[in-house]
Design a binder for these strands. Structure first.
Lengths: 104, 104
DNA sequence: TTCATGATGAGCCATTAGGCTAAATATCAC
DNA sequence: GTGATATTTAGCCTAATGGCTCATCATGAA
């Protein structure tokens, strides 16, 4: 899931898709890359759940999937939560120590 | 940056470090992995800015870096923002169309 | 039908990732 | 100074990544 975000091409594709669906060819245009290479990125984005694709005629249309964004967010969110909880504990500890010092 | 999150070992290390600093050996203990292998993960986490390390005597202590979390958040945040802006536009568009229909 | 176009399949290649072992280094504790 | 402890270096191995070309397939347009 994060692996998909590790590549700049794929992040750019997601950036583009956030604005709305697009065909493979359309998505590929900005990149100096052979189509088969580009397709690997598309497939990987689909397999990792970041996008969904549907083929009508000879055109395959890609749509971003909100769900993955939520999943990635969740991990970072948990991370932030623990970090902040710890920070809070530290702050309380420091506060207590200071109080104690003042009383002495 | 996201590449560092792509590996479960490294995510686990970050999970652990969110609770507070730890030495390399301490961090490595839960993993069935040779130390040199583990060190590669540590180095990668450091190079990608997720952690900072400092060596005193023979012990290297690792600390999580808040900054990276913020950076990762930023990307996802931007992504969400565009997505939601677009959703809003679509909702407005739908609303307008419905109004128009009702008037007809 | 024939041709152009959008997407794919197959397979090659160089680099990187992620694991290992064996040996070296640097402290710390006696 | 000897031995145990905590890393670290060097180098090897396999599989996966990310790129390429060339050949194919399927569909839309003339």
């Amino acid at each position: 899931m994060f692996l998909a975000l590790a590549d700049p091409t794929r992040r750019a594709v997601l950036d583009r898709l956030a604005e709305g669906p697009a065909s493979v060819g359309e998505l590929a245009r900005p990149f100096a890359m052979a189509l088969p290479s580009f397709m690997k990125h598309i497939r990987m984005l689909e397999e990792s759940g970041w996008i969904a694709t549907r083929k009508q005629g000879r055109v395959r249309t890609c749509t971003i999937q909100r769900r993955s964004l939520a999943a990635a967010d969740a991990w970072l969110g948990r991370q932030r939560a623990v970090w902040e909880a710890r920070t809070d504990r530290l702050e309380r500890l420091v506060a207590e120590l200071q109080e104690k010092e003042e009383r002495e």
